[in-house]
Design a binder for these strands. Sequence first.
DNA 1: ACTATTTCGTCATCGCCGTTTACAAATTAG
DNA 2: CTAATTTGTAAACGGCGATGACGAAATAGT
Lengths: 402, 402
Amino acid sequence: MTAPLHEAHPTGAGRALPDTQQGMRRRNLARVMHTVSAEGPLSRAAVASRIGLTRAAVSTLVDELIRTGLLDELGPERPGRVGRPGSALAVSGHGPAGIGAEVGVDHLAVCAVDLRGEVRVRAVRQGANRGRAPEPVVAELTALIRQVVAEAGEEGLWPAGLAVAVPGLIARDAGTVVSAPNLGWHGTDLGALLPGDWPLSVDNEANFGGLAELWLGEGTPRDFLHVSAEIGIGAAVVVDGRLLRGNRGFAGELGHVPVWPEGPPCACGGRGCLEQYAGEEAVLRAAGLELGEDRVGLLAGRAAEGDEAVRRALRDAGTALGIALTGAVNLLDPEAVVLGGALSGLAPWLLPSLEAELARRTAGPACPVSVSRFGPEGPLLGAAHSVVRGVLDDPAAVAERG
Amino acid sequence: MTAPLHEAHPTGAGRALPDTQQGMRRRNLARVMHTVSAEGPLSRAAVASRIGLTRAAVSTLVDELIRTGLLDELGPERPGRVGRPGSALAVSGHGPAGIGAEVGVDHLAVCAVDLRGEVRVRAVRQGANRGRAPEPVVAELTALIRQVVAEAGEEGLWPAGLAVAVPGLIARDAGTVVSAPNLGWHGTDLGALLPGDWPLSVDNEANFGGLAELWLGEGTPRDFLHVSAEIGIGAAVVVDGRLLRGNRGFAGELGHVPVWPEGPPCACGGRGCLEQYAGEEAVLRAAGLELGEDRVGLLAGRAAEGDEAVRRALRDAGTALGIALTGAVNLLDPEAVVLGGALSGLAPWLLPSLEAELARRTAGPACPVSVSRFGPEGPLLGAAHSVVRGVLDDPAAVAERG
DNA sequence: ACTATTTCGTCATCGCCGTTTACAAATTAG
DNA sequence: CTAATTTGTAAACGGCGATGACGAAATAGT
């Protein structure tokens, strides 16, 4: 093919904001931050060559970022090459921090992450939240948050925002929990219950887990499916480095993909949904176990001991997951599937049947399936990092507030 | 919720090109073109208020676009309001045009679309292409293209690019047909067979059909699933106004989503794929008909006559489609599902069972299903318009060449 | 009919920002 | 110790949108 290829879905069209010189400046500040953040200590010249601007332009951008405390000048690099050594720049470990919080079925967790991406403070509170009213649970969470914020403050960090991961459906662009069956919450406006001191975002646990994988996973592609399961089975669909939320924000409801269309009825109104085969309750029932605390640990323990009923239950769950994922993979053609959340702990017993099913139903090479490094920590990390990313994406905004 | 909400998946990060003033200018030229194109004749002041720039800035942008022949000044508007009437601007009907081409199983089609979006020239050539070698088919297509280009030239249009719709899998960012089972083509490099005179793009028929729906459909949302079927069943997944292509460019293979996991074996290696229930061959077989020309017309005709076997076959296909779409809708949460291509002609008999199945398996309000206005013309229109969109997206580039 | 008001398009000026060019500083190569 | 290379900065330049003012062309009010 001699002629250049045309892109049929250009992105330039959907831009909403007017394109002015100030916007250009803001975007370039963001690109400097992202580059330094992603590629460690870097000289001005190195940044310039990476983002395609001149050294002079980068100098003024870096000056501004140093003035606002978002970048630190570490001093001259130890040279190995010819020429004057550059002055290493690094993202500051002080200043704005992302506060992540998680409402789990069995615990509450909060952490503070600095711009470098390091977890600086964390606090966890064990205790079953299933069936408790939102108000006392959120009150406890607020106490934890205030504690973490205070400790972070002692280290020179101030909260740039708060992100809360919840196991349930969240209304898009609003902090309202539409439905969290694990907790028994419905139509709960978290924004009204949480402190309004900082910018707040609330999102599905699976989504934040997927974002953690995208931002922190090593070698994670920009197109993948991140599957995580508690009682429900959720997936984060990441396309071209962006999380797909869907029209109402309900995208990723893998748990209600039909697997055997005439299977057992499901709460959603359908029959034979994935959740009926690979959901926590279904697996426990198939394994002959009862509901209780630390159900994943129980399953993993029994499976490791060689309990045949448990192993068979997990094998069957893997098969059902494989069927549902075959559909998803055919529809989305992702570069990889990543198992996170509770699934990562059960992966050894799920993976064989899952991968077999996926391979059996795929013509060419099957989509690779891997296990998240973060396990149950993914959502919390993803939440905190979403705030950090927000700062990296618009450093000028934070400079105005800081 | 008092605090502003934070976006967890900012787009600013992935920008590849350096952000310079020339880029800003180019983007603003594009925004002017898009605005005028989308909202009909508009004065400079109206454009300015819409895109957020000042009248002065828009004036210079418009001057440049008029100089390069992309915009026309129609003269003073007839005023209904107080104040000096503006001078109406419209997209030019001369200059660059998009050439769309389609390789169908039973026909070849080519058309030329001007920047206003109007089809100015079209040419169709009936004749079965199934099983023919690529070379003679593409030679015929090339002749049609040259004919259309010549006729367009007489109207003052010159080709800004050529886009070809093919019923099959296309390698991403290359003009190679990986597999087109309807035609019997495999690994065919169309770029080498087609004239290299213009920028070329090749894509799946379903994708171009979905883009036509996105760009030309009235009231079509920016998030939807466009399903079309010939022998295979393909879907265009449109997310936030962008076509989702997937890692290898194979996204949207709805035909191989498992519907009944232990159903009849499929060429893909799986069992019970949607194609085994709603694919053209399967429906014809279930209806007791034989393969032949104009198979869709045959089915529609018999169904209209009241043939019970045909109606039952279509009803069952609708049910299978409904099951597969339930999975897709749960995964993507689109705003709508649109049936296009051959399906639009059969919609009266498919829709009832399809919608019933979708509603039965959905908890809240089911995702609305509609039928494309374009029918079998969608892919051709989408292809031609993709070239036009490319011009609107970067008018400066075309000015350099024109 | 005449004036005031409103809106449109344009022009000159200004400010912002990345580029270009030049140069001093700091290192390695020979 | 000199030449070559690379870094960071400063000054002049040029492109581009914003600002403010002004004439042109319509309506609204008297």
